[in-house]
Design a protein around this nucleic acid. Sequence first.
DNA 1: GCTTGCGCCTGAATGC
DNA 2: TGCATTCAGGCGCAAG
Length: 283
Amino acid sequence: MPELPEVEVVRRGIIEHAVGAKIDKATVHDVRSVRRHLAGPTDFQDRLTGRTITGAERRGKYVWLRLDNDDAVLTHLGMSGQVLIQRPEAPAQKHLKIVFDLDNGQQFRFVDQRIFGGMLVSEGGTKLPAEIAHIARDPLDPEFDVNDFAERLKRRRTGIKRALLDQSLISGIGNIYADEALWLAKLHYARATDTTRRPEMERILEAARSVLVSALGQGGTSFDALYVNVNGESGYFDRSLEAYGQEGLPCSRCGTPIRRDSFMNRSAYTCPTCQPRPRNGRW
DNA sequence: GCTTGCGCCTGAATGC
DNA sequence: TGCATTCAGGCGCAAG
């Protein structure tokens, strides 16, 4: 599934292959992929026709195209979304949802199997679309404010993993990277946020940056000239995961079998030795 | 205002 | 073998 590093790869690919191009025609093949564009698919298409793409920006796992009239095309890949830049004659993908015919001879294609992702046009949204004003900066963002994050984390009455997954507090961290970061920081997911001390918090941030940077290094390798890669697989899967999905396998630090717990209707993987469950933990 | 849980969606994996 | 059920995941929204 696409995580922050893949989204960043998409952004770079768009800059390389689509910025400067005019959208001759926009076609919505599945209305569900524009369900967050409340004015509907026809309005979505009309607003894009004739517009020139002037840039691509990212906040967390959202990426948006800047248009020459100050509108923005906000995109989220969800669980299974891909952005491809291909020639029109390339065969249509099974789950092709939205196509922009560009005047540079290419097509911008949005493909999404599970339809958790989608696109919308945000009026005047080139700087930061209003629809995602609540999304916090990610820990790699130079303007990420550590003190502000620490303060808000302290005020929470919840567990640390829930907090890491809350995109309004810190963005770009999904279930996989949350588990990896917590393993690296040697903290249990149920650690209460209000009692987390500053050094622990900095350990978590450092760990989160580390997994993101490492994945970004991997993700960047899989993109070529005509294909803006988001193959639906994280580059991070290329290197071994330490905790996520490793149930029963020995922890690489201490050899204790990794444990899987049900958590928020999902999974949480921990090393029971390196990441002992806190006495007053919170879910 | 904050926290928690549901529902969206498909296909692979699993169970009977 | 074939059908039915479960699971995975990010995020918006509603309920508590």
